[in-house]
């Protein structure tokens, strides 16, 4: 693959992902609307279909306020750090066989590295804004993300044990001979831990404490406005997509499905990712927010022991079967 091909591939990837991010917001508002017996956005376009585009255009015209006490360089860089870290993790995701920008052997590790970097953006935003709400939001976010990163990292060790690789393409291919072509059944404990950690890592309800609007206004993004705020928003949704993709790849068999879809190989992949996106939204519409001490208890006292037990169990089973 030469450099032109790479650039074209990046452009397509970027355009497709941005379109999905835009419509994920529409999807979320529509679903939550209907779950609460409302109709959601209806005015802009047929059934509000042009709403995300209108929102995007609107944020271009909004004033960009930088608080006078803010640490300016850090304040300006924080949203971009978030966005870049999230976008770079897209590079290693295989959407179908061979549909991957960078088929590297440390794929899963790379995703972890990038999602940790994204939390830098959040912490720096909280610190640089020089506002109490932002500061508390950044602090909480950091403690939450690092706590759940451990359980997430440990839950995926089970998948690595079974697949014998960190390469995401190989993980998908290794799932071929297990039940239903997925690791969902043999790794059900791991999946449970991963799913909860995934919600916490992406700061989604019921773990949206970093931006708990009833107590912290908007958390780390309180002082951000206009396009800068929109960039945080994009990063959050790309993060959701990346996490949903990782769940699909590691536990639901990636692009493999009950039958081949000839014209569009990533069909099953997209379907499964949207299943997870729907779950994200469904949970948001259903559950109240956790309290901070409950959040920490859940992460440290339940998920980490469960993940460790899953590793030991998987290793023992592998040793017996081998």
């Amino acid at each position: 693959m030469n450099i032109i091909m790479l650039l074209v591939w990046i452009l397509i990837l970027f355009a497709v992902v941005m379109l999905h991010v835009a419509y994920a917001t529409y999807f979320e508002r529509k679903i939550i609307g209907h779950m609460q017996v409302r109709v959601g956005p209806m005015r802009v376009g047929w059934h509000g279909l042009l709403q995300p585009i209108a929102d995007g255009v609107k944020s271009f015209f909004k004033e960009d306020i930088i608080p006078e006490n803010a640490d300016k360089p850090t304040f300006l860089a924080a949203p971009i750090i978030c966005l870049v870290a999230m976008m770079t993790s897209l590079a290693v995701l295989p959407f179908a066989k061979g549909w991957v920008l960078a088929d590297i052997d440390i794929g899963l590790l790379f995703i972890f590295a990038m999602s940790s970097l994204a939390s830098y953006g959040v912490v720096l935003a909280g610190w640089a804004s020089n506002s109490k709400y932002s500061f508390l939001g950044g602090l909480r976010s950091m403690a939450q993300v690092i706590s759940y990163e451990i359980s997430m990292g440990l839950s995926l060790v089970g998948v690595m044990l079974m697949a014998g690789s960190l390469n995401l393409t190989q993980i998908v291919e290794a799932q071929g001979d297990s039940f239903l072509g997925m690791y969902l059944m043999p790794q059900c404990i791991g999946f449970f831990v991963f799913f909860i950690s995934m919600l916490a890592e992406t700061n989604r309800v019921p773990f949206d404490l970093p931006e708990a609007e009833t107590e912290l206004v908007s958390g780390y993004s309180t002082e951000y406005s206009g396009m800068r705020y929109a960039i945080f928003f994009m990063a959050e949704y790309i993060g959701m997509m990346v996490m949903a993709s990782i769940a699909t790849i590691c536990y639901l068999g990636g692009w493999n499905g009950p039958f081949e879809v000839a014209l569009f190989p990533p069909f099953w992949f997209v379907l499964k990712v949207y299943l997870f996106m729907f779950l994200f939204i469904w949970i948001r519409a259903t559950l109240p927010r956790y309290r901070y001490d409950q959040l920490m208890d859940l992460g440290w006292k339940l998920l980490i022991p469960l993940a460790l037990a899953n590793i030991v169990l998987t290793a023992c089973f592998r040793a017996i079967l081998a």
């Binding site: 450099i3 970027f14 960009d64 966005l83 976008m87 920008l101």
Partner: peptide, 17 residues
Amino acid sequence: GILLLLIFGVLFGVLTL
């Protein structure tokens, strides 16, 4: 590819702003 995507991400962020 990763490096190019990273550069592309930075450019996108800076340019939109």
